[in-house]
Amino acid sequence: MGRVISDKFIKDLQEEGRLHELTKKVQNDDTLMLALRGHYINVYYRGGSILNLSEQDNGYAARFDTNYSKEKSLDLPHSTIKTAEDCSNWVAALSGLKEIMNSYFATKRKSEREFQQLVAWENNRSIISNETEYFITDIEFADRDQGAKLDMVGLKWLSGHRRDETRCTPVLIEMKYGIGAYDGDAGIAKHITDLEGILANPVKRESINKTIEDQFDQLLKLQLVDFNKHARYNRALVSGRPEVIFLLANHNPRSKRLLNILEEIKEPADFDLRFFNASFAGYGMHNARMLGLNDFKELLRQLAS
Rank of each mutant, 00 (worst) to 15 (best):
S54I: 01
G47Y: 09
I192S: 00
S239D: 08
L293S: 11
I208F: 12
N234H: 09
V91M: 05
R163V: 04
T107N: 09
E21L: 11
Q218T: 08
A304Q: 15
W90E: 03
T211M: 08
T211L: 02
A181D: 08
R232H: 12
G147K: 09
L97E: 13
N252E: 02
T23G: 03
E21D: 12
V171H: 02
K210T: 13
S279G: 10
L150E: 12
P253A: 13
R3W: 13
E174Q: 11
N228H: 12
I10F: 02
V203E: 03
T166Y: 01
E71L: 13
Y233F: 15
Y182F: 06
R257P: 09
D214M: 10
L76C: 01
I10L: 05
F141N: 01
E85F: 07
G154F: 06
D86M: 04
L237Q: 11
L220R: 13
R163A: 02
I128V: 08
W157D: 07
F105V: 07
E213G: 05
H78F: 15
N277Q: 15
A249W: 08
Y44S: 10
A148C: 11
L76A: 00
T169I: 02
I265E: 09
S305P: 00
N228W: 14
N252W: 13
A200V: 11
S88M: 13
S111N: 09
N277A: 09
L155G: 06
D29R: 05
L273Q: 06
K11G: 07
N130S: 07
Y177P: 05
V171K: 03
A269T: 15
Q14D: 05
I198F: 09
H20T: 07
I139T: 04
Q117M: 06
M1W: 15
Y45I: 01
V91N: 00
K204G: 00
Y68C: 04
E15F: 11
G59V: 12
L300H: 14
K72E: 15
N130I: 01
D12V: 02
S73I: 07
Q116W: 00
D295W: 04
R274E: 08
I265K: 14
K297Y: 05
E55C: 12
D214C: 00
E15I: 10
R232Y: 11
D272I: 01
K11M: 05
M290V: 03
V119K: 03
M152T: 07
H191A: 07
T137N: 03
K210P: 02
V4Q: 10
R301T: 02
A278V: 14
R46E: 12
L299Q: 15
I198A: 04
R18K: 04
R162Y: 00
G284L: 06
E267K: 15
V238D: 04
V26I: 08
D143Y: 02
V203Y: 03
L172I: 05
Y177I: 05
L219Y: 04
D29S: 10
G38L: 01
R301F: 01
H230K: 14
K11S: 11
E263T: 13
D151N: 08
L222D: 10
K297M: 03
T66R: 13
N58C: 01
D270G: 02
N287S: 14
K156R: 15
D143F: 12
